[in-house]
Amino acid sequence: MNILQALFFPPEQPGGVSSMIPYIQERFNKLGWPMELFSLPKRVRGKGHEELLFQTFDVSEFAGNPIIDKYLQTFRDYIWWTKLRMGKSYDLIHAHHPIPALVMKQLYPDTPLVMTIHSSYERELILNAKISEGGQEHRFLTSLYGELEAKCDRILTVSNSFLHYMSPYLQQPQAVAVIPNGFDEKRFKPISHENEVIQFITVCRLVPAKGLDVLLHACAELKRRGHAFVLHIIGDGPIRTELEQLAISLDLYDEIIFYGYMLHPEEFMPFFDIFVLPSRAEAFGSVFAEAALCWLALVGTDVGGISEQIDDGVNGLLVPPENAAALCDALETLVTDPTYRYNLARAAWNKAKKAYSLSRVISQLKQVYSEFQAASPTKE
């Protein structure tokens, strides 16, 4: 059974999908299930002019909106690139973004299509102040859920909380299966170490949705309470300068290191003590599972997939979003109690190994793919 994993971003890009799909490909190839990856290079811009076919809504009502027009142009570019580069057919296509999913079904209507919806693009854009809730862009993006439901042969998502979020936009949400992300344990190598000063680490794209402004205010309060620490921020994004200026204004210049983008942060994480990320929304939050596999204590917000990964007080600490005081209290608890911190980290590692193993994902995907194995054989 020849399978295509259709991505939007190239697999070397940061993020949960990119950190998982190449390892899924490797495992399936070893099992004798040929699998290839396909994505749109960043350099492809403004090439496509093909007609876009939507079944469940009239796309013309959104014409002239610059954000939607840019999205639709990317859709056309993906069609152009697929026609140019796809030289064979497949028994099944598994897409990981709405654009490749809808493009593949438009170009290969007879090929079974599985779609994993990994995150809510519209919610992230709202939190990042790019679009307004209820506005034209929001309505367009949420319309895509119904379009995907109409055209995909199977829809998957990564957490129960995100399935709940999507449900109002679907006709049959009960048909959606939840397969949480999984990670190759061989990538993660916990290291025994003793840091004289507690080391915090966070890994994310530097955008408002990740709540790093809340983290900096929590750290400023922690410093006022007399605790020594260093916060390591791995990632880049449009608000980096703003965050650096906020750190200076909060008198945190000596406590924070901004690293910028790093391709394999999991190689760096085991040397730290506490992973913290006060996101305002997360469909899954892959970086929490990755930090747990590095044997770090976890602190996150009680939102989305984070609250499904962290059992508060058992394998990490959960705090309300937008609450710097509560976040400071949680960090202070772990800073002042190394035994508790170690026990939380160990429990997080145990849960991540069991619940978020790549082997579990492979088994679940094999079951999904096998439902379509009776499809016609691949034609070269």
Score class of each variant (00 low, 15 high):
Glu242Thr: 12
His217Ala: 06
Asp213Tyr: 01
His217Val: 04
Val230Gly: 07
Leu246Tyr: 04
Glu244Ile: 00
Leu206Ala: 07
Asp251Thr: 13
Leu216Ser: 00
Leu243Asp: 07
Arg225Lys: 14
Val214Lys: 05
Leu243Cys: 10
Leu222Glu: 07
Ala220Thr: 09
Val207Trp: 04
His227Asp: 12
Gln245Arg: 15
Arg225Pro: 04
Leu231Asp: 08
Leu215Ile: 09
Gly237Glu: 05
Arg225Cys: 11
Glu221His: 04
Ala209Ser: 11
Phe229Gly: 02
Asp236Glu: 09
Leu206Gln: 06
Lys210Trp: 00
Ala209Val: 06
Ser249Trp: 08
Leu231Lys: 06
Thr241Trp: 03
Asp251Pro: 04
Val230Tyr: 14
Glu221Arg: 06
Arg240Cys: 02
Asp236Cys: 00
Gly226Ile: 14
Glu244Met: 04
Glu242Val: 09
Val230Ile: 14
His232Ser: 14
Ala228Pro: 10
Pro208Lys: 03
Asp251Asn: 15
Gly237Phe: 07
Pro208Cys: 01
Leu246Pro: 05
Glu244Arg: 01
Ala209Thr: 03
Lys210Val: 00
Ile239Val: 15
Leu206Phe: 05
Leu231Gly: 09
Glu221Asp: 04
Lys210Met: 00
Ser249Pro: 11
Ile234Glu: 02
Asp236Thr: 08
Ile248Pro: 04
Ile233Trp: 00
Lys223Tyr: 08
Arg224Thr: 13
Lys210Asn: 00
Ala228Trp: 08
Leu212His: 07
Leu231Asn: 06
